[in-house]
């Protein structure tokens, strides 16, 4: 049989049953489908953000703050106005950990156990790094500036909590906490899952199984977390 006929026979049978129409295992398909639904969860939070942000359009009493006046700190460079620099560093860390993750997957295809383990370890470190940065960012946000802002009832508000903040409308702080918090929670779960998988890799579980598909699956999750951050970064820090 020539190559071309095999290909047509192959094409004809894709949806014919007895095989996956996507040529992916059920586990990977499940992960994709789960990520799709998770994307909708994040979307609902971003929709809430868009709605509330737009409902402050043209509001002169409590205008929506500009991000470069809020997120302008950098560790060890106290008092300098460095807008967006720290969050760019966080983005860099997350993208880099995505790269090490995909390198681990690639090494898994070659069955190179040691490489997989090393790259997984780097990914975990990246994740922890990101979480630490987020902790620092939250601390800055909660502590606030030295001057603070006088609220209408005369109390001077420093930083932010869920009820009010010195930067602008209450919803600004609330949405910051819930959007980045929900993302951070995903990163945290991702780190936990990555650690489990890393231990399995080191123990040789996947070596025995004959493939590293599990690494691919957590890889998908990890890249998704990265993907969400791209949009959080865009919507919360840039726009």
């Amino acid at each position: 049989m020539s190559n071309a006929t095999t290909l047509t026979a192959e094409k004809k049978g894709i949806w014919g049953g007895g095989r996956s129409p996507f040529s992916v295992s059920y586990g990977k398909l499940m992960m994709w489908v789960f990520l799709l639904s998770d994307a909708f969860t994040f979307s609902s939070l971003l929709v809430a953000y868009g709605f509330i942000r737009y409902s402050f359009h043209g509001n002169t009493v409590t205008p929506w703050p500009s991000p470069d006046h809020v997120f302008n700190h950098f560790p060890f460079l106290h008092g300098m106005h460095l807008p967006l620099m720290f969050v760019s560093l966080m983005t860099f860390i997350l993208i880099f950990s995505s790269v090490t993750m995909v390198l681990a997957v690639e090494a898994g295809h070659r069955m190179a156990k040691k490489e997989v383990a090393n790259y997984m370890l780097l990914t975990i470190l990246g994740g922890i790094g990101f979480l630490s940065c987020q902790a620092w960012e939250w601390t800055q946000f909660i502590t606030g500036t030295h001057e603070g802002k006088e609220l209408f009832n005369g109390i001077i508000m420093h930083g932010a909590n869920l009820h009010s903040n010195e930067y602008g409308p209450t919803a600004f702080g609330d949405l910051f906490f819930i959007v980045t918090g929900f993302h951070g929670f995903h990163v945290f779960s991702g780190v936990m899952i990555n650690i489990t998988i890393y231990l399995n890799v080191v123990a040789g579980t996947y070596e025995k199984r004959g493939h590293y598909e599990m690494v691919e699956k957590v890889g998908l999750y990890w890249h998704f977390v990265d993907l969400v951050w791209v949009f959080v970064f865009t919507f919360y820090y840039l726009i």
Binding site: S37, D38, F40, T41, F42, S43, S44, L45, V47, A48, I52, L162, H163, T170, A171, D174, L175, I178, F182
Partner: peptide
């Protein structure tokens, strides 16, 4: 559609229990 309710419910829980105003 259920994830959207999850998001909505999450915000509602925050409104109820943690004093936010979504």
């Amino acid at each position: 559609s259920f994830p959207v309710l999850l998001g909505a419910g999450l915000l509602l829980i925050f409104d109820r229990s943690f004093g936010t105003s979504f």
